[in-house]
């Protein structure tokens, strides 16, 4: 389908339907650092508003204040919405309420585990923040695990190791 055809199709729809379409398209954008998760899975996508003329406004929230993926999210959301036939995209960053790992759905946690990243253990409570995590190995499920480093390959992860199966793995930190 040509881009021009898409434009005619999407912008001819009722606004409510356009919003639903925009939410779906934006929500499918993957996390560049954890590609099995989309921004909808993460809870980074907060709201979408559509006005006449294919004008879309998207609210996103950062996981970590300095998360470098935010710049990539912004570009990818814009590209995806333009490709879907919307004519202009504006992206706002909202800080409140602050994102927390509690917003990860059960499905998102299972996707993380299957990908080899241990999902955040329990609630983002103060206990968890201060290191009382009990983390199951994403490979063998053993709780015989130990922290190697507070910080892993990205700001949102820590580096752990399984003592049962010897697998080193990333742990998505409670936040």
């Amino acid at each position: 389908m040509s881009a021009a055809g898409d434009t005619d199709t999407v912008q001819a729809l009722p606004l409510g339907e356009q919003r639903r379409r925009a939410l779906e398209v934006a929500g499918r954008v993957p996390d560049p650092e954890v590609p099995v998760l989309t921004i909808a899975d993460l809870g980074v996508l907060r709201d979408v508003r559509v006005q006449e003329g294919g004008v879309v406004e998207v609210d996103i929230t950062p996981t970590y204040t300095g998360c470098p993926a935010m710049a990539v999210f912004t570009m990818d959301i814009e590209t995806a919405l333009l490709a879907a036939g919307f004519s202009s995209v504006r992206i706002n960053t909202v800080l409140s309420p602050a994102w927390t790992t509690d917003w990860l759905s059960a499905e998102a946690r299972e996707k993380l585990r299957a990908y080899g990243i241990a999902p955040p253990a329990g609630k983002a409570s103060r206990r968890a923040l201060f290191g009382d995590d009990q983390v199951a190995c994403p490979r063998c499920g053993s709780l015989e695990t130990e922290k190697v480093s507070e910080f892993g390959s990205t700001a949102c992860k820590a580096l752990w190791r399984c003592r049962a199966c010897a697998e080193p793995f990333d742990y998505f930190k409670c936040h």
Binding site: P62, Y64, T65, L95, S96, P97, A98, W99, A124, R126, L129, F130, E150, F151, K173, H175
Partner: peptide, 11 residues
């Protein structure tokens, strides 16, 4: 801003 920074400061 503080609500986000607080959790980072804990680490």
């Amino acid at each position: 801003i503080a609500a986000k920074a607080e959790k980072e400061a804990a680490y």
